[in-house]
């Protein structure tokens, strides 16, 4: 049985990298006595896969992992059981059953929402100038930047990967392409903007928070959670 788990990652857990989050969940699922399925072979490992790895330093309200189980309790009970073994900085939001033939979360991911806020000491000195440059930046029909891949560096237009973007006070909200087909890191977009505006860029400028991760639905994006159904038991 396939299960999709949605969780939050916040606080000091933002310093825990993706591989260690995987290790964390392997142990957490054991602590919660989830009846997880194992792969075959001499060194069997629990069957689990994550939707979209979150970089070190980022927090999130919309992380997903898919697991396979042999048996399960109700969604409500499982969320409770898992939360009982979490640390501060990890919270299970939902536990849902997926249709058997459902593709993995990783291959479904298409977009994600982010909120970016200025880290203390990195706020712009002149906000109205910043906003003015920002509007000019967004008004461009294309945003061609050099993007490094593993093998080479190439020019790409990142504008089509930005689905929605706006300001809310001094917080930047955006929906961008995420996943294996197309992927735009919010910091990458912001770095392009700082270069465009001739402002000094530091990778520490923004605290980046992922709000939700999406897949393609029938009418636009729906959260990965929507693919699953709540398990009810008497």
């Amino acid at each position: 049985m396939k299960i999709r788990i949605k969780f939050r990652k916040y606080g000091v857990l933002k310093f825990i990298g993706h591989l260690d989050v995987m290790r964390y969940f392997q142990k957490a699922l054991r602590r919660a006595e989830v009846d997880i399925s194992f792969s075959g072979g001499f060194s069997p490992h629990p069957i689990m896969s994550f939707a979209a790895p979150l970089g070190v330093g980022l927090t999130s309200d919309g992380e997903y992992l898919d697991i396979e189980v042999n048996s399960t309790d109700s969604s409500k009970e499982m969320v409770k059981r898992l939360n009982a073994v979490m640390v501060e900085g990890m919270e299970i939001i939902s536990y849902r059953k997926l249709p058997d033939k459902m593709k993995s979360a990783m291959s479904q991911v298409a977009a994600a929402d982010y909120l970016l806020s200025f880290r203390e000491g990195y706020e712009p000195q002149n906000w109205s100038e910043w906003v003015e440059a920002w509007e000019r930046f967004l008004a461009q029909p294309s945003m061609v930047v050099w993007k490094k891949t593993k093998k080479s560096e190439q020019e790409v237009d990142i504008r089509p990967m930005v689905y929605q973007i706006g300001l809310n006070g001094q917080t930047i909200a955006m929906r961008v392409a995420t996943g294996s087909a197309q992927n735009l890191k919010p910091e990458f977009l912001m770095e392009a903007f700082y270069q465009f505006a001739g402002m000094e860029w530091s990778s520490f400028t923004f605290q980046v928070h992922r709000v939700e991760t999406y897949m393609e639905g029938e009418d636009g994006f729906v959260s990965l959670e929507e693919a699953g159904t709540v398990i009810e038991m008497d």
């Binding site: 606080g11 310093f15 825990i16 990298g17 602590r31 330093g57 501060e88 990778s203 520490f204």
Partner: peptide
């Protein structure tokens, strides 16, 4: 913490 190797060494809060 984001500059050094393995920041998890210094944040506590373990299980």
């Amino acid at each position: 913490l984001l500059t050094i190797e393995k920041p998890a060494r210094y944040i506590g809060n373990e299980v």
